[in-house]
Design a protein around this nucleic acid. Sequence first.
DNA 1: GCATATTTGTCCGTATGTATA
DNA 2: CTATACATACGGACAAATATG
Lengths: 242, 242
Amino acid sequence: MAGTTAGGTNGGGAPDLSELATHSASLKRSGTAERVAVVLRDRITEGYFPPGSRLSEESISGALAVSRNTLREAFRLLSHERLLEHRLNRGVFVRILAVDDLIDIYRVRLLVECAALRALGEPPFDLTAVEAAVSTGEQAALRDDWAACSTANIRFHQALAGLADSPRTDELMRNVLAELRLAFHVMADPRRFHEPYLTRNREITDRLTKGDAAGAERMLAFYLEDSRRQLAEAYAQRLTER
Amino acid sequence: MAGTTAGGTNGGGAPDLSELATHSASLKRSGTAERVAVVLRDRITEGYFPPGSRLSEESISGALAVSRNTLREAFRLLSHERLLEHRLNRGVFVRILAVDDLIDIYRVRLLVECAALRALGEPPFDLTAVEAAVSTGEQAALRDDWAACSTANIRFHQALAGLADSPRTDELMRNVLAELRLAFHVMADPRRFHEPYLTRNREITDRLTKGDAAGAERMLAFYLEDSRRQLAEAYAQRLTER
DNA sequence: GCATATTTGTCCGTATGTATA
DNA sequence: CTATACATACGGACAAATATG
């Protein structure tokens, strides 16, 4: 019944929001609100809903064929993850990070990623996930596929944090890195921000392979500091020139 | 408040759950769902709703005089914080931590709290919050007020993590420590778990006052390891004997 | 500054499915 | 196995806040 009026919140692009129906392949039984949240999260992190855009209850619920009540439950979840911002009586918006947010995100990353390396035990580490992320990143760079490169880079850092073997830490990193993507969508110059770090990813991994966790940690700290500075500067500039 | 048709929806008696109405002290404009979440969170962490208890949509929405839709939004928030567990088609329950959860929580604490100390700059630290927490804990112990002592102890560790000066880290610790309270409510022998740590809190603080962050970090690591072991053992026993 | 349209906030009623006694 | 209770999800309603002309 819901009238899917074309051209809702977003001016252009693919109008296809759906593919909600049969997720029966997944073992995890979850309600519709959570499935809606998954779809929206994907759309946000992929840039389909750019930062600052308003997510109208009516159009989204229409496009996804769910009731407004259910949609609002999904909104709550994503607001809690800081991907959406809930302004009372005005609706939900894709968050626009402030520079302070960037700084805090990098502070968390420095804390968590370095701590994960420091907490490593004896030299034969399980680096399969780290290795995989690094090589997919390198291959994506060869293809000039900077979107994939960005994803691989993020996965590299998730893998590093994953060495702590802690589900809660994993979730923290997932959320924080998803937030970080919001900043990249404001700037959209992926190559500049990811290419220089490919070799450093490789170097860090090599250190770990050799069992030199302390060295890897030191390099990682410099890496994050450089990345933070470069990103924060470019981001601040981009924000003010709007 | 909107939609107040035909008077109060529930003229009937609400138990002692309420006090929803006047939150006017807070500057933060928030919707009912968030206020409901605050009330429920308090009730859970204070033990009014013990772990394992089911939170019926009907009775809670009746007691708080909010609609079931609004209540469900609040449930989503608390589920996301791992205080509630959402079992599909069965409702929401106050979470019962598994031993694995305890271990992971302590892993996160070790990671974050130690990293916060390690990241400290030059010796004159701002320890007002830490100091305050320690002394309130000591005074509570003198009064045999172990509930207050538990709270102060938690606040002590929040203050330690707060030295990292990172909002996201603060939130992480808030959530993780709120979760940890669930374990204490299963056992309810607060004295045994908090008294031995009062002096160690004091010692750690003293180290920090002297500017010896590395020493404090070492002590903290032992502290957490001891605490984790003692708690996990007692908790496992308590769980199996039920 | 005002009148109006749009959108959110909140509530109600209800049909359907699922788990449990 | 049937019955009951409850969560799930939808749609409609209206007040209040906000945006718009």
